Amino acid sequence: MQEADRREGGHQGQGEHGHGDGGGMGHMAHDMHGMDVAGLPMAERADDRDGLRLDRLHVPLGPGLADWPAGLVLHLTLQGDVVQHAVVGRPVAGSAGLPFWSEPWLRAARGHAVARGDAARRRCAAHLDSVGRLLAVVGWDDAAARCRRLRDGALSGAPSARFGEELRATTRRVARSRTLRWAMAGLGRLSAERARATGVSGPALEADGDAYDRVRVWLGTIERCSDELDDARPLEGGAALVGPRGVLDGDRPPSQALLDVLPELLTGAEFAGARIILASLDPDLDELVLARTPDAAHG
């Protein structure tokens, strides 16, 4: 089994430290901090966590990156390779209708007939999509492609007997990967207590830990859902509205809560880990439409 050795963090834009050579060059370098050169902002100086004077760069990420939530922009302030501050730009929801990944539960709440198996398939596919995106970010491309193929199989309605064995083999292979665990250990730690206090629900609350713990929750849910894909019994509309990312009829859409807690998870992390942290939350911007239509959950 080949496992990823690479950690993807995008292109690291770091300021250049001016080395004084006497005369006016040192003063010139100092005066250029904070100014625009050829239309590009120069780095500023500030103390880092070790008391050193390092360049401070303001770096936007998104929205056109591969394996990145469509419509999302992050504004990061970096000192060296450490995120000192993070701001989520105003997200743009990509759909005006019901969010695709949460649709079965929202339709059932409106009184439509929805089979439990259809809801299980959507949850299973949503988590396979999230796992595939995260594996692509860390560089495990063959496992990412396999997750996406299984996602498509779940959505197509293929009998679970046809791909259930491969589904379980894939989730277990990813869960056993020591390389993946090493690459993600300690990134974006979110305790269950902090998750509750910030309104986070779903897998991020259940994980009670770091990015790797959140992936483990996805994988466990995928495996459990694999036994329910052909369940024709009706999904109870009065049951708790819990979609792949959390509670759908709360004060905020679950993905909004994930976006709200994201800056504190990024602060203090190395730049190379920022995309991994985001991918381990995988907010669905289409869910933000629920905030604009309060009756979306109940019809």
Rank of each mutant, 00 (worst) to 15 (best):
H75T: 05
D210L: 01
M32N: 06
M42T: 15
T171M: 04
R148K: 06
L205N: 01
G9H: 08
P60T: 10
A93G: 06
P63T: 13
E103G: 04
L290G: 09
V114T: 11
S156A: 15
D227P: 03
G15V: 08
V247A: 05
L61A: 03
G24A: 10
G111V: 09
R49A: 14
T179D: 15
M35S: 09
A46E: 00
E8Q: 11
W218I: 00
G111Y: 09
H85S: 09
E223R: 15
Q79K: 08
V82Y: 08
D48I: 11
R189K: 05
G250Y: 05
L288M: 07
S95A: 12
V88W: 09
L290R: 13
G139P: 04
L259S: 02
R172D: 12
L40G: 05
R173D: 11
R53W: 12
P234R: 10
R214C: 04
G186F: 00
G199C: 04
E228R: 15
H27N: 04
R133S: 07
V87W: 02
R49Y: 05
Q256E: 14
R90T: 11
P63G: 11
A143E: 02
I277V: 13
V247G: 06
R292F: 09
A29K: 03
P234Q: 07
R292Y: 06
D282S: 03
W182K: 11
S201F: 06
L266P: 00
T171D: 06
G51E: 12
D48S: 07
D231S: 10
D47H: 02
A93L: 02
R107H: 05
A297C: 14
A120C: 08
Q12N: 11
R196Q: 14
R178F: 04
S160H: 02
A161R: 10
A96T: 09
L205V: 14
R151A: 05
G132M: 08
H33P: 01
Q12E: 14
R216Y: 06
D129T: 01
L248H: 13
G220A: 02
V242T: 13
F163M: 00
G26I: 01
M35T: 13
L285K: 08
E16M: 12
G243A: 13
W218M: 04
D210Y: 02
P104R: 05
R121G: 12
R168H: 11
Y212H: 15
G188N: 07
L167C: 10
R194M: 09
L219V: 04
A183I: 04
A175H: 07
W218Y: 12
P203A: 03
L74M: 01
R275N: 10
A183V: 04
D118I: 02
E193C: 05
R53A: 15
H75L: 13
A158S: 08
